[in-house]
Design a protein around this nucleic acid. Structure first.
Lengths: 201, 201, 201, 201
DNA sequence: GTTTAAGCGAGACGGTACGTCTAGTCTTACG
DNA sequence: CGTAAGACTAGACGTACCGTCTCGCTTAAAC
């Protein structure tokens, strides 16, 4: 056998400056040219970095972008969770309306869609995408629903995980397939309909 | 502007033999190598056709594949609609279980996913995809729900279009993002939960 | 087996325009940057040609340069041979002095040296180099010596081939290794000494 | 200009162990893979040495190889000179036949050719090569010819330096350009022909 | 029936980006 | 400070496809 060494580079010597420049260049470029026309060469050039430095640390341009995107989001997004005013309907509508806004802002939408597409084409990447972005996103809804459940506002036997899918699936489907526009009205109606499914019997 | 002649080739002289060979080769190849590694050159070569013959009639490889896929589906799929046994729950579960099977069969899944991905990356294609595949698919659910509505089994004020999204969105989301496995149990639970949202008040 | 086809491109469809542009660009660039810094990419770029067009028709940059150089020389150089004034010594000195001039002109010397070096490193290329450049060059000397032999000016048993090597070897050695400068005096002395070896006994 | 310090490292602290390992690795590798595929990285790796240690002490891989090769030759080769049996022809044929053997042995030929090629491409290196290898080699022939001259066996006015070039030039030319094979017959004939040029008038 | 012009298979073309390789420099930790 | 190790910027390598562009050949429509 060749050997198990020679594979992984020494993380402790990694250039933080290069890493940062690459992630930033990726985010800039994906916004400028879109994912399909995003090239490793362009990232390297924009970042002032050798191509090899990218290939050394990431297996694909999707992986670069996932890191880049995660870096810009990680901090804030999932920390606080959904506010709990006691009014579930209002809270869900508020957060979903905010999400509509987010998915309407190209600087967020472009890289996120790029990643979603890359994930759809590559199950392994999809797993990472789910773990680092979708998963935490769903979790905050689940948490809010649990609070509502404990407050007796939704059915005590409700499967919260599936409930979250019921709520977010239609949203994600519209967005991903351009099936219909993402509007406040849509999410309001969606919440109304979903809450009827969640209601205590 | 260019003259209006140069644009559209003469459809009447088109070689049916070539057209068929191209569609068939596309379907074969997308199954063998996946969408990303599917190349026009390979399609042309497999079909025994010049590259130009493809470029003459289709604007992109996605368009080729859409035609190819549509050709294999068109006939049967949407003709009959969802059977109406009078038991909405049973009917929906039956058809969704069948859909699970379909989306688990690689020879169907591979090209369909390819198209979904291509659509996610290109709104124009997405429109065609919606019109020719998603739309008719959703319509059959809507029709069945309407029958149920007329039979008084679901709320008379229910927005049938949104209801269909509530039912199929979670399914599509799981499938597209590999979020979780598509199982009979999942669709059964999904139907159960959705029907509570649809129920007359 | 893969097949014996697919290898050789169709010569009849070759673009003469591209071929010419490539050869010319090669000659220009080798003069500007030298052989070691001559790159296929630069040739392609200068010639306004895709890299593949070079790789399609030549196996290496040395082969390109050999063609390029041969094309500039072929026509004239070896056609006439060495003039025969009846005075062997004068004729040899004249042609060798002319050769000194040639090897002192960088526009000739640079590509020729490049090829000689490439040949020294690759026996296969050396064979082509010998066949197309060195060989014909040696042959004209041999012919002139043969005339002298028939005129009784050199030993009738002289091995003309070896005699040519005796005459040109020291020249080539000086040039190739920068051992000492190539001057008129050197070639004059060389002819004088060699002729003593050629003289009838 | 940079300060004058930065240039030359402190020789007294140089690691002899590293120097030796580098030279040895160079000789091994040039025999194994040839000059063109000889890389600094491979030398460093084989020698168990950092690349910088090579770059610190040598300006190019050719310079490394020149040192490496010289180290293996220096001692013996030129010490004794050509034996003088009194029979010039026999002595020259003997030593040239031995040289044929040497240039037929790949373990000698490979690095020597590598250096010759590097020299042909770089006049500065060529000067070093001439001074340390070619020059001394030619000198031993000159010395033997001088002895013959003093013994009245060759023309007293013979230019011994040029005579040496006449003798070795054809040999070098054959070898360097693969023009024709290096055989005993060739060198015998070469000596015969050259001696006629050297003979007293 | 012949003519003629389009579509056709084939594949060379100018390009772009790929992922790999090596050069030569720079950084870190050690002795 | 020299060293071993190895990450870094830079850029050429040879390959794979892109979409366009001839080439002759075949073939259906218009004469």
């Amino acid at each position: 056998m060749k050997s198990s060494t020679a594979k992984t580079p020494d993380t402790s010597r990694r250039s933080e400056r290069s890493r940062t420049a690459i992630l930033q260049a990726s985010m800039e470029l994906v916004g400028e040219v879109g994912y399909n026309k995003l090239t490793i060469e362009a990232i390297a050039s924009r970042a002032g970095v050798g191509k090899q430095t990218i290939y050394r640390w990431w297996p694909s341009k999707a992986a670069v972008l996932l890191d880049a995107f995660t870096a810009t989001v990680d901090s804030d997004e999932y920390a606080n969770g959904i506010p709990d005013s006691g009014d579930l309907e209002a809270d869900l509508k508020a957060v979903l309306r905010a999400t509509v806004d987010e998915f309407t802002d190209p600087s967020f939408e472009a890289p996120y869609r790029a990643l979603a597409i890359a994930g759809a084409a590559d199950a392994e990447l999809a797993a990472q995408f789910a773990e680092r972005l979708t998963g935490p996103g769903f979790a905050v809804y689940e948490r809010r629903l649990r609070a509502a459940q404990e407050a007796g506002q939704v059915d005590p036997d409700l499967d919260l995980s599936l409930a979250t899918e019921l709520l977010l699936g239609p949203f994600q489907q519209r967005w991903m397939t351009y099936y219909r526009p993402l509007t406040y009205e849509f999410v309001d109606d969606l919440v109304d309909m979903a809450l009827r499914a969640f209601a205590p019997r």
